[in-house]
Design a protein around this nucleic acid. Sequence first.
DNA 1: GCAGGTGATGTCAGAAACTGTCATCACGGT
DNA 2: ACCGTGATGACAGTTTCTGACATCACCTGC
Lengths: 187, 187
Amino acid sequence: MSRWEPDARGRMVAAALELFAVQGYDRTTAGDIAARAGVTERTFFRHFADKREVLFSGPGSLDEMVTQGIAAADEDAGPLQMVIAGVRQAAVELVEVRTREQAAERARIVEATPALRERELLKMATMTAAAQAALMERGVAELSAGLAAHSGAAVFQTAFSRWVSGETDLDLPESVDEAAAALRDLC
Amino acid sequence: MSRWEPDARGRMVAAALELFAVQGYDRTTAGDIAARAGVTERTFFRHFADKREVLFSGPGSLDEMVTQGIAAADEDAGPLQMVIAGVRQAAVELVEVRTREQAAERARIVEATPALRERELLKMATMTAAAQAALMERGVAELSAGLAAHSGAAVFQTAFSRWVSGETDLDLPESVDEAAAALRDLC
DNA sequence: GCAGGTGATGTCAGAAACTGTCATCACGGT
DNA sequence: ACCGTGATGACAGTTTCTGACATCACCTGC
């Protein structure tokens, strides 16, 4: 028998999700989460750089999916088409990992907590930067790549928001298509 | 003579700017800033909700300028034109308050510090939400308003970044025009 | 003038978020 | 059987942020 139960990280993530949901982020201490997961507070901070990160430590980050999708996009597509392809790819992979219910629960917590919202925005900015770099890798000029990457992020955020809130009955990838079409109409 | 020197807040902002510039955000404690400003740490936290906020407490927030600019936009303009008008308005008012040098120095500090970058992204998201609300106030549908607001934010961020980095010789409002034109070309 | 209210500040105690350091001890290989 | 490794615990310490109360120049009304 092991000295410690396995998957301490997974237990901490689950504990944090439950505690944040029932008593809120602010009234949940890192020690609370650790105790519920059967470890010490010190161990919590060994696994997560800070208290917020426990909700943002998925194995596959969006960055790679988007970057991959851009790299695989059609050769003669414009920057916007490429980044939409990347974002759609990320959407497809996201629904394979999480149910709409899970995503909605997590989104509810993040939305209710400014500190968590900040972290989410930073992750999104990182994804945007990665998308811009991937576009430039394919020969798009810096200015256009930046704007296209931001547009892609906007499409993703919009599609995700509508998906988890139930404003649309579409699944996430189709919601991305819908938002992308709306963006095209805008110009 | 007063019991205390006037403009404690201004002294704290100046002290923070100097200390962050020379020794970095992380190695500057709230107590350091307070001491250099001639007040106590407790007074620092009475003026600023947290340590980061000392760099984000300008009197005129971008929200209002953008909102105002959208409200004043041409009647028969599309959503994107309206939000660009709002962003341009914010750009005009920003250059009246800060020189390019000041903006660049501050941007350097924020860029170098993830914690500050998070706060900046949150402010930008707040501005985006305000822009979306202003657009909806003028009859734009929620979906279009959200995407247009995000596009406006992208234009502003891009223009600002190019302005402070010196990638363009244009002044900020003209840099906004340039970025807006590039966005139009994208579609 | 002067009594009392007001507001900005100081002082102090304390919770919570992290960080550094060292000890422990199952496990896996030699 | 021995030793290195890696994850964890234990503990002290710093920093961020909050609550409670005291202080005292300034203003206001009388």
